[in-house]
Computed example of a mutant assay.
Amino acid sequence: MDRQPKFKPQSESRFFADGNTDRPNPANVVARGRSVEADARFLGEDDHMYRGYSGALGLPDNTQWLRGFPEDVDVSQTFLQRGQERFTIFCAPCHGALGDGNGITKQYGMGATPTFHSDRIRDMAEGEIFNTITNGRNTMFGYADKIQPADRWAIVAYVRALQRAQQGTVDDVPAANRSELGL
C-alpha cells in the first residue's frame, strides 16, 4: 500500500489527452447525499438564519442586525427547552444559570462576565446576540464549531426568556392567569 501507483493532484499524466490528472466534473453533477434545493442551507446562504444580520460583512455601518427571529425558526416551548439545555451546557459555566454573570468560572478568578440583564444586552438585537455566540466577543470565544445554528437561536430565545423573567411584572401576566399567582 505504501508504494502503489497513483495520480497526485495537479500532476502530469500521459493517460489523458490534455496531459493533466485533474478532471473536470461531469455536467449536472451533484455531491452525494445532497440536492440542488439543499444548496442554500448547506452553504449557509441565508444571512438571517446563519449570521444574524443582513448587509455587508465586516462593515458595521451597513450591517442591520436581525430583530426577532428568522422565518425558519418556530419559537415554541420545545424550542425554549432546547435553548435551556444548550445554555446550561455552554453558557451557564460563565454567565450563570440566571444569566447574571455569576457562573462557576467567576469563583476561579475569571474576569468579569456580563450579565444578560443589563440595559446594553437587553437592548441588543437578537441577531447580534446570535453573532456573539457564533463568533465570540472580547474574552468569550466563538461557538460556531460547537453549536448548530438552530441551537444558537434556541439559546437566544432562552436568554430572552431569562431577561423577561427577571424584568417581568404582574402586568405582564394575562388577567385570566393572575389568580394562579396567589396574589
Rank of each mutant, 00 (worst) to 15 (best):
G52H: 00
G52L: 05
G52N: 04
Y53F: 10
Y53V: 00
S54K: 14
S54R: 15
S54F: 08
S54G: 10
S54T: 11
S54E: 14
G55T: 07
A56H: 11
A56R: 13
A56I: 13
L57K: 11
L57W: 11
L57G: 10
L57T: 13
L57R: 15
L57C: 07
L57N: 11
G58A: 00
G58E: 05
G58I: 04
G58T: 00
L59E: 15
L59R: 12
P60E: 04
P60A: 02
P60D: 04
D61C: 05
D61H: 10
D61S: 15
D61V: 10
T63C: 05
T63E: 11
Q64M: 08
W65T: 02
W65G: 04
L66W: 07
R67T: 12
R67M: 08
R67C: 04
R67N: 11
R67I: 09
G68S: 08
F69Q: 02
F69S: 06
F69D: 07
P70C: 04
P70V: 02
E71H: 12
E71V: 13
D72E: 13
V73H: 04
V73I: 14
V73W: 04
V73M: 03
D74M: 11
D74V: 09
D74K: 14
D74N: 12
D74T: 14
V75G: 02
V75A: 01
S76T: 14
S76N: 07
S76I: 06
S76L: 02
Q77F: 13
T78P: 01
T78H: 12
T78C: 08
T78I: 09
F79L: 14
F79T: 08
L80R: 11
L80K: 12
L80N: 09
Q81N: 15
Q81I: 06
Q81K: 14
R82A: 09
Q84K: 14
Q84W: 05
